[in-house]
């Protein structure tokens, strides 16, 4: 079994019959599947790089704008300031890797 950490998440790579399963350890300690039966025929030396590329696509890293807590607007006198709803699915955030991240 191989393992790697990406974006503060721990991933494991397990081989079964020449194929690979990828799992992610969740904050509650349980495991979530990323993929099953992958990379058949791929040399073992290339598996981790391929898995990292896949994980990077599924869990993009970037600078996420974090706005005020919209459930609790800031009150300044009578003025109520409501920030952007960063949890809305169409909220646009920058999801490209920063140049400070490794490019592997």
């Amino acid at each position: 079994m191989k393992s790697f950490t990406y974006n503060d998440m721990d991933f494991s790579l397990e081989s079964a019959g020449g194929r690979w399963d990828i799992a992610c350890k969740k904050p509650d300690g349980k495991s979530a599947y990323v993929g099953a039966g992958l990379f058949a025929g791929l040399p073992e030396s290339e598996v981790e790089a391929k898995a990292r590329a896949l994980v990077k696509a599924i869990f993009p890293v970037g600078i996420r704008s974090v706005g005020p807590d919209v459930a609790h607007p800031t009150l300044i006198g009578d003025l109520k300031i409501v920030g952007p709803d960063v949890t809305h699915p169409n909220f646009i955030y920058w999801d490209k890797d920063s140049s400070s991240f490794a490019t592997d």
Binding site: G35, A36, G37
Partner: peptide
């Protein structure tokens, strides 16, 4: 579903995503 597919000997990935989001 991925556990079932693994038992079937299949090849699959799973992506948690909201289809109403362009980014996802």
């Amino acid at each position: 579903v991925l556990a079932d597919i693994k038992a079937m000997g299949g090849e699959a990935i799973g992506v948690q995503a909201n289809v109403s989001s362009e980014a996802e």
